[in-house]
Amino acid sequence: MASATPESEDAAECGLEELDDIITQPAGGMTMLPNTAYDEVYDNLLVGDESDAAPTAWVTHILNAAHGVDIHHVNTNEDMYRKLKVTFKGIEAIDHMSFNLYPFFQESADFIEKALDNGGKVLVHCIQGVSRSATLAVAFLMLKRHMTVKDALRLVRSHREVCPNTGFQQQLIKLDSQLRLQRHDKLQTE
């Protein structure tokens, strides 16, 4: 799978309506659920659900974006993957508009980047593989591959039916604004 370029022709700031269009436009204005357990959304980066169909035979790292023990979480841990020599990280996120996933963007992106830099293959999953995991994958692409939120979401959406909840979308827009400001400040000092 070829990587997308970090340069964006669509560099303008965006809002929720534009992200919603990116999510629903390929399905004729509808929100769809994926029909696969996981999909590769970027080179060696997979987004998926909680199913047992996860490719643990060849995945080297798993990021559980729904780590926890109740019905709204996926109860996995590093002990479960140790024998398979899979590195595990859990984020105890709730798929709710009011949940602040933003503080986990950088540590999740660092986890994914370290794995990819070492030749690994990463599965980021949650319960359905559409909101929490997709949000962390988009944040990775923004932070580590220097994509705008629109470019990153388009790339992920082109490989998997995803639909981050509105609160997560707002947090991605916030990240996009902050990264845009950092790039502007950097250009001003050069």
Rank of each mutant, 00 (worst) to 15 (best):
E7H: 11
S3T: 14
A152G: 11
E107Y: 01
A109I: 03
A12C: 00
V149T: 04
T166C: 10
M147A: 12
R157I: 07
L143Y: 00
G48F: 05
A152Y: 06
A4T: 00
K186V: 06
H67G: 03
V130E: 10
S108W: 07
Y42L: 04
T31R: 15
A4M: 03
I62N: 01
Y42E: 11
F88I: 02
D70E: 09
D117E: 13
I91K: 03
T24L: 10
G167K: 09
A93V: 07
R132H: 05
K83W: 10
N77I: 01
V74I: 07
L187I: 15
Q169C: 14
N165H: 06
H61E: 08
K144F: 01
Q178K: 12
Q128S: 12
I23L: 14
L84D: 06
S51A: 04
A134V: 02
E18N: 09
H73M: 07
D52L: 08
Q182N: 14
K114P: 01
L84G: 03
I62G: 08
H61R: 05
V156G: 08
M1Q: 13
L175G: 02
D95C: 10
I112H: 12
T76E: 15
D39M: 06
D176N: 14
E9L: 04
H125K: 06
R82Q: 09
V130N: 12
C14L: 13
Y81A: 09
L136K: 08
D79Q: 14
F140G: 00
V122L: 09
N77H: 03
E92H: 02
S8I: 04
R180L: 13
L179T: 01
A53R: 10
K150F: 04
V86D: 00
D70V: 00
Q128Y: 14
G167L: 11
A137G: 05
E161K: 15
T24Q: 15
N118W: 04
G120P: 06
G90N: 02
M97F: 10
E9D: 10
I71C: 02
Q25L: 13
L172E: 10
A93K: 05
D176G: 12
L179H: 03
T76K: 07
A134H: 10
D20F: 07
T189F: 04
N35W: 10
V59R: 06
L63H: 03
L46E: 13
S51D: 03
A115T: 08
A134K: 08
K150I: 05
A12E: 11
T56H: 07
K174W: 05
Q106R: 07
A53F: 11
S133F: 05
A53C: 11
C163W: 14
V41T: 01
I173E: 13
T189Q: 10
L141A: 06
M147D: 01
R180P: 06
A37S: 15
E190R: 08
I71F: 02
E161A: 15
K174I: 00
V122P: 05
F140H: 11
Q182V: 11
